[in-house]
């Protein structure tokens, strides 16, 4: 037998789906008939949902009369689009030439290692989203990492742990 709270949960899920469909329709209509509109629509969808959820992509395919394959070809081709929910914190590791030469790969490796350790001690998987980005224009501070918009420069791998800790503390 379904409990009342299960009913309520289902109800709110259905409400979410209804709202999502309405939003997808609105976004698709806004760009209707314009050449190359798929990318603009996907930008709007990512702004709305934080990433491109599969269910939303499916709805968009139906709305636009195109295939899911076409949408996935676009969102996997452009690094800008996300297929998974963004974390609470974003860590961007600069892979520009200067940072790369100064050891950005080591920074990235240390970040992943520290996050694995944190996950093992109970931090939610995905709380920190790590990505490699092209040159952020702070070559003088190489190697650099941008954490939630704050740039940290001249980092050595040992410093990574402290930065993550400070973020968690906030």
């Amino acid at each position: 037998m379904k409990t009342k709270s299960a009913d309520a949960e289902l109800g709110s899920l259905l409400d979410w789906v209804e709202g999502m469909r309405k939003r997808v329709r609105e976004i698709a209509r806004e760009w209707e008939g314009r050449e190359g509109n798929l990318i603009m629509i996907l930008h709007a969808i990512q702004n709305e949902f934080g990433y491109v959820p599969r269910g939303v992509a499916n709805e968009l395919a139906r709305e636009m009369g195109i295939s899911m394959a076409r949408i996935y070809e676009v969102i996997t081709f452009y690094h800008y689009f996300r297929l998974t929910p963004p974390g609470s914190h974003t860590v961007q590791v600069c892979m520009g030439t200067a940072c790369y030469l100064k050891g950005a790969e080591k920074l990235h490796g240390e970040l992943e290692r520290q996050l694995k350790l944190m996950e093992a001690s109970g931090v939610r998987k995905g709380e920190f989203h790590v990505e490699n980005v092209r040159c952020i224009g702070c070559c003088g501070m190489a190697p650099a990492v941008v954490m939630d918009g704050d740039t940290h420069g001249r980092l050595c791998p040992d410093a990574v742990k402290d930065i993550l800790k400070r973020k968690r503390g906030k």
């Binding site: 295939s67 899911m68 394959a69 076409r70 996935y72 070809e73 996997t76 081709f77």
Partner: peptide, 9 residues
């Protein structure tokens, strides 16, 4: 059919 696609780059 669109079962197959080219993903990533």
């Amino acid at each position: 059919v669109w079962a197959l696609s080219i993903l990533h780059r």
